[in-house]
Design a protein around this nucleic acid. Structure first.
Lengths: 375, 375
DNA sequence: TTGAAAGCGTTACCAA
DNA sequence: TTGGTAACGCTTTCAA
């Protein structure tokens, strides 16, 4: 059994042409289905097709790409590894949407996975080579996108879209983003409709575009509805005094001076709170409970992120349309490819506002707001 | 802000050459690092590098591929979607090893994900195009590989390796496989060493190469050690009478006539059982318990697959070296690329035999075996 | 209707 | 040492 299976050289168009007794360009045109412009006789077409079948000819996508610039291959680049379990929830739905849509429009998907350096971060450029270049364009995503690489890609004229808003000074990159701004505004509107007049915003304190979007939505809605904003001055757990030790959860944490805001809430200064994240809302509810207040009876709380259905608390929240974002990323990218000159604009994908069990009308006896004065 | 960002055409070597005032081939040689064969003056090199930097030139991998046939890009094709949770455990470790090793040897990884047809099965060939061709070669894996596609790929001379043994008549494909045969034999050896003399093999009844491997290992070891094989005649749950209704697990399942084997085991005809899978071992233990037998006191049981550490029962089992298989798949593939003429041979990766809590010495009073007679 | 030839961006050979 | 040039496999224009 020492049969060295000689790898047959893959047949080319010229081989087909020779076998069929036609020119190479005839073969190309038959394959391209160019029956309109250059009508090739039935008989010739048959002969060519027979030759193709006999030789088992398959077009070479690399050569095609070099010639036409198109592959019908779309790249996907994630700035972090997809597989570690923790990240998976983040990426999974996006990828689902991406794959779904790419297939619908008959494009192949190529996932670029290798990390460039030793730091585990994935890079687009490795040894100065833009690896994505084998694909027609790419969808980039990741919690920690490398802005320098985004800028360089854009400068190089490589067509790509980014999932999630990313702003890089001096560059205009096309982003597909959940419409956090409208969603945040909608949530504030709903609170206002229910009768809340004094509300607060609990910021995560993360310096990222999507949080800025949420905040803008909150602020504009507060202004528009004439509500009174009684937010803590500083972001994060400490900013709201939420790191202060409770009764049994007590660690050696300093019950810092920061509980003024929390105390004010307990005193009824605020009837509704909008929080950037679940990890802010949970301790808030706990601290309020310690002070004898119940959510949503005394204070309504809404969360500006998606909360899984099996979470302990069914927060009123928004739902990030990950799947749809993935699908739209593909459509946007293909649009970019088809219409290279088009001015870029972010694509906003609406978030559904989910009604949970943590928002209700304000307590009946809540004092009327003192318009105009600030906390 | 109607700045239509004109996408700059990506700079080519000729642009660099013009700017640096040298020929294009000089640029190519500087980039290729061919300082040995063609010594280019320090000054020229500097000028070229400056031009590269100024223009932001990056080599075009497509053109490179077309010219040299190599990309340092390796494809990964899975015959099923990777992401659905159920599949994930299967693929995850393989992919980890693949990615790890590919990066070590400075290759990029390209994951081909799109499904070819409407049936959800992923195909290599779509519209007659071998999509994998953009990569230098590929690692294929999947529980349900399409053998016709494997054969065609081989016939086309495309370099690939398959994870898991796949035999296609008339073709010799390179596989990287866990060494189930040796592992099964090792487990039988261990049982024999403990003093077991009458053992049985519970087959999954799945018609796949890896199960044949296990079986071969079992049979050869049984023969070599002169053990008596008292296996059920037919595979699967029914074959062993394990679908027979127990006390409370009773559904309307017919307690078929197939319990003869089970009854014989209960009577002490067998002191050790080797099972293809956990889903066979679990009901076996239950049925034995119903008959008053305990594992491993009365009957030892070993499982020929990997069992997670958080399984209810800590089976004696084997550990599939998925990560290592992934790594070796990459090495084997690259070997194929570097040495195209090499005769192909399967690569076996040893499985560790894990000692659990379900194998022990046979009960003291077990009757001596009647050598030579068969069940 | 068909074929010849240019060109996509690169590498590698062969002269100069 | 350097530059010209052929070739990789394909698409597409232009002539025949």
């Amino acid at each position: 059994m020492t049969t060295t299976p000689r790898r047959a050289r893959a047949p080319r168009q010229s081989d087909v042409a020779r076998l069929a007794g036609v020119s190479q360009s005839a073969v190309s045109r038959v394959i391209g289905g160019d029956t309109d412009t250059a009508r090739i006789p039935e008989a010739t077409v048959r002969r060519i097709q027979d030759a193709i079948k006999e030789l088992g000819y398959v077009p070479n996508p690399t050569a095609r790409k070099l010639r036409t610039g198109r592959n019908r291959m779309l790249g996907v680049h994630t700035f972090e590894a997809v597989f570690p379990r923790a990240r998976e929830d983040f990426y999974f739905e996006f990828l689902l949407g991406i794959e779904e849509r790419a297939e619908e429009i008959d494009h192949d998907l190529v996932l670029f996975t290798s990390t460039g350096g030793s730091d585990g971060r994935r890079r687009v450029y490795r040894d100065g080579v833009n690896r994505l270049n084998v694909a027609d364009g790419a969808v980039l995503l990741g919690v920690a996108a490398d802005r320098a690489e985004l800028a360089r890609l854009e400068a190089d004229g490589y067509p790509f879209v980014h999932i999630g808003r990313r702003e890089v000074p001096g560059t205009r990159i096309t982003c597909v983003v959940p419409d956090y701004e409208s969603a945040a505004a909608a949530i504030v509107d709903r609170l206002a409709d229910l009768g809340h007049e004094r509300i607060a915003y609990l910021r995560a304190g993360i310096d990222e575009e999507s949080y800025a979007d949420r905040r803008r939505g909150y602020e504009s809605a507060v202004e528009r509805r004439g509500l009174r904003d009684v937010s803590p001055e500083r972001p994060g757990l400490e900013g709201a005094g939420l790191d202060a030790a409770g009764s049994e959860t007590a660690g050696p944490a300093s019950a810092g001076p920061g509980t003024v805001w929390l105390d004010a809430v307990a005193d009824g200064a605020v009837t509704a709170v909008v929080a950037d994240a679940e990890w802010l809302a949970n301790p808030l509810a706990e601290r309020l409970a310690e002070r004898g207040l119940t959510v949503p009876r005394d204070v309504s709380v809404a969360v500006l992120e998606g909360v899984g259905p099996d979470a302990a608390v069914h927060w009123d929240c928004l739902q990030i349309p990950r799947r749809e974002v993935g699908r739209l990323a593909i459509d946007t990218l293909v649009g970019l490819l088809d219409e290279p000159g088009t001015p870029v604009a972010d694509v906003l994908v609406p978030c559904v506002v989910v009604e949970g069990e943590t928002v209700a009308a304000p307590p009946a006896g809540s004092p009327a707001p003192t318009k105009g004065s600030s906390a």
